[in-house]
Design a protein around this nucleic acid. Structure first.
Lengths: 213, 213
DNA sequence: CAAGATTTTTAGCTGCGCCTAAAAATGGAA
DNA sequence: TTCCATTTTTAGGCGCAGCTAAAAATCTTG
């Protein structure tokens, strides 16, 4: 793998730990245990990130992302969650199986690939675990309220957020029609769905990207 | 990336150069220029491959793959071509754009991923460049091998070799369309066949005589 | 067939990311 | 406030995969 994937891993760890406890400074020991390496290795890498302008390092206190670093970290999270979505929604992996594979895929370097993958998946707003997928500019989709698809009137684009009370048979039938968490439903598709599903699919409205239905 | 991806690159180079000129021994200088590194680096890596039992190294003469190494190389070629197929057929990349991206994707380590990707793409037999995709066992679909028509992807000329589980009605329907043992099917014809027949017709690829379809 | 030209390997160096052990800084308790 | 326990960084090494320069083997040619 490219030399920089370790840097990317440290950047992601810094983001993950920094968000969950926004007390700003993340200790190198925390990062070390998160990454499965020893603290001195983290110190060295954090110093590299600081030189790149991606993180600040206050010796003996911890590290934190710069705005630039945060944007980079978010683009990694974006790639990771898009790949997870692909693996589950298209290849039929189980939610629990995909993390390690996505971990490898997210280090593939191609802006165009991410753009096309995103479009191919229908610009999903969250991954199979329900976690939000950052947009290309490093911001999140504003939170849409989730509601039952049957209540959607008039019909507009929306995204599947959850499935209520789904039997295995229902779920496979849905996935056979390409419906899974993160799927974007067009009005014309919604009309064609079995009535029963309208009560089970939990959705939120999705921003229109301008493409025709 | 994993430590082993350099090994994989050398293995692939050895395969690529060894096949095109099957005079057995590939020089380290050839490999070096193919890989964009200097000859001493190749020598070192070839010695590692030899220790792993993937290649033979005859000092001052060159290197060549062992049967084990060849199978590994073929599995890499398989992954590469499956990813290329995905990028072109699903994400809409141009076939010239995909090589570098596939180069990165092919080093993702997951047997299950390859299996599912292959199935998702419909078990293609060649990539967007028309190069054959090795099977999971490291062999190619040889000319003359018989398989189910449904697995033919992309569509090419083929010849009907057998019909599985055909009812009398099916057989008469087929012969009404001019399909019998020995019939040659063109891609445009195959597209027009009932889906059920694709699972019944056993075919093999046929040499193209150059005439239009 | 011997000697020079060429190819290939060996020797020894570099940078990267990891490690352990030792030194330094922090912060809590007497 | 001072001293000790804990955390963090620095110092020094290791393995990997690349490099250059020198040595060794092979090829070529007079």
């Amino acid at each position: 793998m490219s030399r920089s994937s370790q840097r990317e891993d440290h950047l992601k760890a810094l983001y993950a730990l920094g968000e969950s406890q926004p007390s700003s400074w993340v200790s190198t020991t925390q990062m070390a245990s998160h990454l499965g390496v020893k603290p001195p290795s983290v110190t060295a890498m954090v110093q590299v990130l600081a030189e790149l302008g991606w993180a600040e390092h206050r010796p003996y206190h911890g590290a934190r992302l710069t705005p630039t670093g945060r944007k980079l970290a978010l683009s990694l999270v974006r790639k990771h969650r898009l790949w997870e979505t692909f693996l589950v929604a298209r290849l039929g992996f189980g939610w629990e199986e995909v993390h390690d594979i996505a971990e490898q895929l997210e280090h593939v370097d191609s802006v165009e690939l991410v753009k096309r993958l995103d479009a191919y998946l229908g610009h999903p707003q969250s991954d199979p675990h329900g976690d939000p997928i950052p947009k290309a500019d490093g911001t999140f989709h504003p939170e849409g309220e989730v509601f039952v698809l049957a209540e959607l009137n008039p019909l507009v684009r929306c995204e599947v957020k959850a499935v209520r009370e789904g039997s295995d048979a229902t779920l496979s039938a849905m996935s056979a029609k390409g419906i899974a968490l993160g799927s974007v439903l067009m009005p014309s598709q919604i009309e064609a769905l079995p009535a029963a599903w309208l009560e089970q699919l939990m959705v939120c409205k999705t921003v229109d990207d301008g493409s025709a239905d």
